[in-house]
Design a protein around this nucleic acid. Sequence first.
DNA 1: GATGGTCCCTGACAAATGTCATGCCCGGGT
DNA 2: ACCCGGGCATGACATTTGTCAGGGACCATC
Lengths: 201, 201
Amino acid sequence: MIRLLLADDQALVRGALAALLALEPDLEVVAEVGSGDEVLDAVREHRPDVALLDVEMPGLDGISAAAAVRQEFPDVRVLIVTTFGRPGFLRRALQAGASGFVVKDTPAAELADAVRRVHAGLRVVDPALATDSLVAGESPLTARETEVLQAARDGSSVATIAGRLFLSEGTVRNHLSSAIGKTGAGNRAEAVRIADGNGWL
Amino acid sequence: MIRLLLADDQALVRGALAALLALEPDLEVVAEVGSGDEVLDAVREHRPDVALLDVEMPGLDGISAAAAVRQEFPDVRVLIVTTFGRPGFLRRALQAGASGFVVKDTPAAELADAVRRVHAGLRVVDPALATDSLVAGESPLTARETEVLQAARDGSSVATIAGRLFLSEGTVRNHLSSAIGKTGAGNRAEAVRIADGNGWL
DNA sequence: GATGGTCCCTGACAAATGTCATGCCCGGGT
DNA sequence: ACCCGGGCATGACATTTGTCAGGGACCATC
């Protein structure tokens, strides 16, 4: 019997996945949580064999949660299940110690197999995404550039960003300009879109 | 036996929902599709009692699909199931003839009940969302403003937008300015964020 | 302890964006 | 027939944004 932990902020999806996996005779869902913060406690309490974590969650995101789990319980396998096949997510997930990475586009029938593979100690990675990840490469943005782009995500003006990060306006503009150049964008909005799409933010 | 059609672009979620609903003795999933374009054909072929449609889908979106279904088969009930509780989505869904509107945050246990209610001819609407919808009101944007904002979503420059819509740059700037004013934003990026968040785009 | 590299910071300049006053067209009301 | 309001279009003007050249701090390498 493989014991599973499910973490996804959308209760409906979480419950549905539980129902799907419960159909398999060798799988058992022992815990369900709706935020990244609850993951570690749930692992401590229920000791699952495999943890299925969504990336997009309130509180701690799935990747950080994966790192926390692996740190304290190295023999708990982590399978990341996410909506967005951002190349950067895959890289960061693997670095965080995840054993598998599945996007929500994959057929439902394959999920149980992915769980079994991960439990058996194998890696499970969407092949198409893996190549994307190689193409996209690591984030070319420096720490400051990333920070400034994040602050620009909601459409803040340079003055606002400068105030929030305690920088001069010229500096903020310069970091933005650099990020625009590195992403191949034409302005900050596009740069945000590209960087976000690659999982760099 | 209530016959169901499931439409969601994420195969994993679709399959999981099917598994969840199949647990109910009085429900039967007779068709599953992964895009809005396939919905109408599937309804013609399988004649479900209730169609569960996601809003975010490639091709025809769930709301347009709902309208198409209701037009040809007025006795097929439509239940919209969506990730984002955008106020505008609810309004448009109801105008399109949907009988229910459920966000994916709701507990899995309630979905089957929602289906039964809808099948019985009742309306099912998330109460919190309904109030939001009243507060947000209808879109204050004119047709052109909406069009220009949509074109600006990906970070295109004024020149690009002007070229795409066959307008002068000044006109595009003017519509953007107007949209910025109506949304209470400080620049176009923020205006896009606000309008999109309200389901106005 | 020089050298070259990278990152961070900054101000000056050019280019894009946002605002405004103005005019045209259409449909509803007086 | 007349006026009025709303949506659309446009060019001139002020503001914001993006680019560039340059300087200082830190680190690895020679």
